[in-house]
Design a protein around this nucleic acid. Structure first.
Ligand SMILES: Nc1ncnc2c1ncn2[C@@H]1O[C@H](COP(=O)(O)OP(=O)(O)OP(=O)(O)O)[C@@H](O)[C@H]1O
Length: 730
DNA sequence: CGCTGAAACCTTTTT
DNA sequence: GGTTTCAGCG
């Protein structure tokens, strides 16, 4: 039996009430995830086979962390738990049972880009202008329809039909094309299992029999499809335990239904509802601030949340002049915290509403030589060259995959352009076959030019050659020789530009990741590899082993905790975010702000800028209503020196003179080349974040020149002269 | 068919 | 301001 002494009495109750439906609704930091972890460990210690436990988490990262903790409690048995995201667990089940719904086990997974490409193809064939119905919009409609389980004779038209009659036709053609390509999109991974189980009751019984205990984390952000899956899978014992916090539901835009948590007790009669009320994460100050904001939401379950943690530092709200000033303020604070308070960079997070905000901070952090990592943004696996290589691999395992075929058939360039593709497409349409499989028909026809035949013929034999080899367990070697044969690395190298070299690096990195996967999972196949990387979330790639501060969206921060949190860009229009023509969902935005605040353990900084650059123009900004809502007695307001000038003048942006600007920020327009000439060991220099210091070491020249500077408090910094904007004083 | 420069678009949030 | 798309030319 495992030791539950660490837990409080409600937490214990949630752990040991193993039979029947249990719902844990509780505020942030009350130990919901910890309860799930202990509950699973407890079940295993009771002798329940780990393979009969199904645990669903929100991200892969959350799953692997939980598994690790359980392993620490009960040992290796933890490896046999069915644990992962809804998508990854059901993708795995679908591979097993694909034949029952007309797919094969090597089906491709289409991401949002692939979906949009399919849609673009349909619009073209249907003669619908993209201006009229944008592919992005249609992709949204299709995703909504699927995750809300709306089909042709089941509400689709009621929901979308009035908008545009064509939508249903496009929807059905889209599904036809994916099926034809042996491909599933993200939503299919949830609704195909429903179809599978509905049509095969015996199979459903098998799975019900297998999963005796079902557990779900972050239940407030499950969608209708996930909800139906759960209802199907729960067996007569009804051993389902869901944990969540309605105040942290932030994925409505993607189909999440808070009703799932609100009506849980109706869906599962005799539910035991357990509330956790003690927060173990944050200081009293932070919790009070979060609470004063979230209580402005009308629709929520009443919850109490208290902490016995210390009062802690008061939360700071800082007004900055513009986004550069904000970045400087944050960098300065981080410098202070890591040096004087000895806080580790890895315990600090900068959270923002949109990925686009990261760049500004990135620039300043480089200049300040503060180590950082960015979670999300332009994902590695979404880069063009990476997707192109992956498309080769997808086509090898799934030759029906039209989308991958179209990506690679002319990459690298083989003289196969639009005209050739259209010719092939006409053959494909005739026999309703996928494109790649129609190549033999084209080759046998006497109506096609020799040149086109030659080009397709060469491509066809290339792919078939590797297809026969790829099933082997040593797929890395095969892929390597394929890459070699098509010569893309060489092409990038010959191009020689900085951009091409970056591409080169990315492809090499992809190959490395394939090799690592193969070594780490000797009995897994290329199909498994492709499946796993399709379902990777941004946050899954975050290596918290690195001692670097982390930048991410508020969404990605869900479920995490940090000693220090900066919530930046708290301005009307940005947080809460408002897009032209869209009705904003203020309550959801407020929950997002709440999630952000409650990530902080010890220090919380909230900031906003009076002016913000968008598309090259500066716009005046208004402080976020969420700041207004904070109980004023709980926070300290302050202004950066630049904002101070602005406030004093009580006027608008334009009236700040260049003089005043440079008075406070003398480096703004400073030519660093001048600095490069003058700087030498012993020089006294000034840095806009660290202040004055003495150069103790100088190395290299030009863009690569590096210095070590000792600043006031004896802290030594390694800086790149090019970026550090040092002003030489003496 | 492929490259280049101009124009258009852009910013939600992600499995 | 930066990135992606697209038309027009070689
Ligand atoms: N009984 C306890 N004693 C000490 N620490 C605890 C206890 N319960 C939880 N904690 C700690 O509190 C922190 C928050 O726990 P956890 O992440 O499980 O909360 P949560 O309810 O899932 O939070 P959120 O809803 O914000 O994701 C963790 O660091 C955890 O170790």
């Amino acid at each position: 039996m495992i030791n539950l002494d660490r837990l409080n009495s409600q937490q214990k109750e949630a752990v040991i009430t193993t039979e029947g439906p249990v719902l844990v609704v509780a505020g942030a930091g009350s130990g919901k995830t910890l309860v799930l972890t202990y509950r699973i460990a407890y079940l295993i210690s009771l002798g329940i086979p780990p393979s009969s436990i199904l645990a669903l988490t929100f991200t892969n990262k959350a799953a692997s962390e939980m598994k690790e903790r359980i392993r620490n409690l009960v040992g290796k048995k933890a490896d046999y738990i069915y644990m992962g995201t809804f998508h990854s667990i059901f993708a795995r089940i679908l591979r097993q049972e694909a034949h029952l719904i007309g797919y094969s086990r090597d089906y491709s997974i289409y991401d949002t880009d692939d979906q949009e490409n399919v849609i673009k193809g349909i619009l073209k064939d249907f003669n619908i202008s993209e201006n009229h119905l944008s592919p992005r919009f249609i992709q949204n409609v299709i995703s909504k329809a699927k995750n809300k389980l709306l089909f042709k004779d089941n509400g689709f038209e009621k929901f979308f039909g009035s908008y545009n009659k064509k939508l249903l036709e496009i929807f059905e053609e889209y599904n036809r094309r994916l099926k034809n390509s042996n491909a599933m999109d993200f939503d299919d991974l949830l609704i195909k299992p429903i179809e599978l189980f509905s049509n095969n009751p015996d199979l459903l019984e098998e799975y019900r029999d297998r999963f005796h205990y079902i557990l779900v984390d972050e239940y407030q952000d499950t969608n209708t499809a996930q909800y139906h899956l759960l209802k199907m899978l729960v067996n007569k014992n009804k051993n389902i335990c869901c944990v969540g916090d309605d105040a942290q539901s932030i994925y409505k835009w993607r189909g999440a239904e808070v009703r799932n948590i609100l009506d849980f007790h109706k869906d599962f009669p005799d539910t035991k509802i357990i509330r956790l009320e003690q927060n173990y994460r944050s200081t009293k100050s932070i919790l009070a601030v979060a609470d004063s904001v979230i209580k402005n939401n009308v629709y929520q379950i009443e919850k109490t949340l208290w902490t016995s943690n210390e009062e802690g530092d008061r939360v700071k709200v800082t007004v900055c002049f513009d986004e550069k000033d904000e970045a400087n303020f944050v960098a300065k604070k981080i410098f202070e915290l890591t040096n004087t308070k000895k806080i580790n960079p890895r315990d600090i997070a900068i959270l923002y509403r949109t990925n686009a905000q990261s760049r500004n901070f990135e620039e300043t952090l480089i200049k300040s030589s503060i180590p950082y990592v960015i979670v999300g943004g332009v994902e590695f696996y979404k880069r063009k060259e990476v997707k192109d290589v992956l498309a080769y691999l997808k086509l090898l395992v799934n030759p029906k995959d039209d989308e991958s075929f179209l990506r690679v058939v002319n990459f690298p360039s083989r003289g196969i352009g639009d005209v050739s593709i259209e010719t092939l497409r006409s053959f494909a349409l005739q026999k309703e076959k996928p494109l790649f499989l129609s190549i033999p028909d084209l080759l046998n026809s006497d109506k096609v030019s020799e040149r086109i035949k030659r080009n397709f013929g060469a491509f066809h034999s290339l792919i078939t050659k590797y297809q026969s080899l790829i099933d082997s367990n040593d797929f890395y070697v095969i892929i390597n020789s394929l890459i070699d044969e098509i010569g893309i690395l060489q092409t990038f190298k010959e191009e020689g530009t900085e951009e091409a070299m970056q591409r080169y690096e990315n492809v090499v990195q992809l190959l490395n990741s394939i090799q690592e996967f193969q070594i780490a999972n000797p009995d897994k196949t290329l199909i498994d590899y492709l499946s796993e990387i399709s379902l990777i979330a941004d946050i899954d790639n975050w290596e918290d082993r690195k001692n670097a501060i982390v930048l991410m969206t508020l969404h990605s921060a869900k479920g995490l905790e940090f000693d220090v949190v900066f919530i930046v860009g708290c301005e009307e229009g940005l947080l809460p975010l408002k897009r032209d023509g869209d009705v904003e969902d203020i309550e959801e935005e407020r929950r997002l702000f709440y999630v952000g605040c409650t990530r902080a353990k010890k220090h919380l900084f909230i900031s906003y800028a009076r002016n913000r650059n968008r598309f090259g123009n500066s716009y005046p900004q208004i402080q976020s209503r969420f700041i207004e809502e904070i109980d004023k007695t709980l926070v300290d307001f302050e202004a950066t020196p630049l904002a101070e000038i602005y406030l004093k003048k009580n006027s608008n942006y334009r009236s700040i003179t260049t003089d005043e600007y440079s008075q406070v920020d003398p480096f703004e327009n400073y030519e660093y080349s001048q600095v490069t000439r003058q700087i030498k060991p012993g020089s006294i220099v000034e840095h806009d974040v660290f202040g004055k210091g003495r150069v103790i070491y100088l190395d290299g020249y030009g863009d690569h020149q590096k210095v070590i500077v000792e600043f006031k408090n004896g802290v030594r910094k390694h800086l790149m002269v090019k970026y550090a904007k040092l002003k030489v004083i003496k």
